[in-house]
Design a protein around this nucleic acid. Structure first.
Length: 167
DNA sequence: AATGCACACAACCGCGACACC
DNA sequence: TGGTGTCGCGGTTGTGTGCAT
């Protein structure tokens, strides 16, 4: 499981699995100085034995400033459901309407909470908050947050959504 | 107290789109 | 204009944790 054929990962990348705090630090530090561009370069120059893709994912979903993690509010949940009705599985677009949320988080949330809920309860907006069965386990690495905007660059259909939802 | 199951979340993979040369 | 490299997205898998038995 070492050779990848993907364009971005055709080099052998030896490091896989969960990120360590040290790797996070290195990545965040490098991006703070050079900015989040040229992920392949970042991967190499930051000294991480990871592919650019992995670095990008880690940054976007975890290290980026102003990321909100956990505790999805009822309002957010309802918005996700409505947006999903409108857009389907366009997670990045949905995330673009939820400042501080990432597409991966929303996708996970949908798959584990909302999809099930809707399937089981017949398309109803139950808005019973995120903790339907068990308390939310929040891992607290989210305090890297500072400030910024969620700029997923997915503004291409903004007007549609705004018009539709009057956001 | 031990074990198995279900859930939540992080991370990986493959593919298409886009940018640059 | 075509080729190559990079980026971004969505789907899927892996792993840790808590709960039920």
């Amino acid at each position: 499981m070492a050779l990848k054929k993907d364009g971005a990962t055709k080099k052998v990348v030896n490091n896989k699995g969960a990120w360590t705090p040290e790797e996070d630090r290195n990545l965040a530090q490098y991006i703070e100085i050079h900015g989040p561009k040229k992920w392949e370069t970042i991967a190499v120059k930051s000294g991480l034995n990871r592919c650019g893709k992995s670095c990008r994912l880690r940054w976007l979903n975890y290290l980026r400033p102003n990321i909100k993690r956990g505790n999805i509010s009822v309002e957010e949940e309802e918005l996700i459901i409505r947006l999903h009705k409108l857009l389907g599985n366009r997670w990045s677009l949905i995330a673009g309407r939820l400042p501080g949320r990432t597409d991966n988080e929303i996708k996970n949330y949908w798959n584990s909470h909302l999809g099930r809920k809707i399937n089981h309860k017949g398309q109803k907006l139950e808005s019973s908050s995120s903790q339907e069965t068990r308390p939310q386990k929040t891992r607290d690495i989210s305090q890297v947050n500072k400030e910024g905007t969620s700029d997923s660059g997915n503004s291409d259909i903004n007007f549609d959504v705004n018009d539709f939802f009057d956001i």
